[in-house]
């Protein structure tokens, strides 16, 4: 998984990069299954690996699929990234260990969901009952976000302009958009 992520750094062929990001999502889905999150795994496989790869391929078809040559290593960002990573790792040192039963995450509402959701909501899948019932408003908000995004996409590229080939913005065009 890390290998696919790192090779995306070096590749300049954007088609390969997009394919690798699909593979990366599938690896993540496998990892979710290992960590018991089956629902998340198949959502990731369908939506993350499927739909977003298709969307990116569509974008490549409309734009260009080769990246221009660039500097091999950018040292400023590299240092920034390493420092941030080191700080984050330092922050994990007093986190609960992997699989710890007494971790704070497991002590608040989750036990109630596990004990009562079968009687209160019905479906044997706890994730389903939390998603649709206890946290129904979350899901409603999610739908609103997806709807807004769809409107946004339509507003941005939905209608073709009359002049098919927009030129790069000249001074005049920039002035117009500013006013």
């Amino acid at each position: 998984m890390a290998a696919t992520a790192v090779s995306m750094l070096w590749l300049r062929d954007l088609f390969a990069v997009v394919m690798l990001s699909g593979i990366y999502s599938l690896f993540a889905a496998v990892l979710y299954v290992v960590m018991d999150a089956v629902d998340v795994a198949f959502t990731e496989a369908a939506v993350g690996a499927g739909i977003s790869t298709v969307l990116m391929l569509g974008t490549l078809a409309l734009t260009k699929s080769k990246e221009k040559a660039h500097k091999k290593v950018a040292y400023g960002p590299l240092v920034l990234v390493l420092v941030t990573g080191a700080i984050l790792i330092y922050g994990t040192l007093d986190m609960p260990r992997y699989g710890d039963v007494n971790a704070p995450v497991h002590s608040h509402v989750a036990p109630r969901y596990i004990e009562k959701s079968g009687d209160e909501v019905g479906p044997p899948n706890i994730v389903t009952s939390v998603l649709a019932s206890y946290r129904g408003y979350d899901t409603l908000g999610e739908t609103a976000v997806v709807f807004t995004a769809a409107i946004g996409v339509l507003a941005i590229i939905g209608r073709r302009r009359k002049n098919k080939k927009d030129e790069p913005p000249t001074a005049k065009a920039k002035g117009e958009s500013a006013s």
Partner: peptide, 22 residues
């Protein structure tokens, strides 16, 4: 396992794809 993070991430995946599309 704790179902709560699963629910949150299910929502996050879908929202993530919406923002990617935008």
């Amino acid at each position: 396992s704790n179902p709560l993070p699963h629910v949150l991430i299910l929502t996050a995946i879908v929202v993530g794809v919406a923002t990617t599309a935008l």
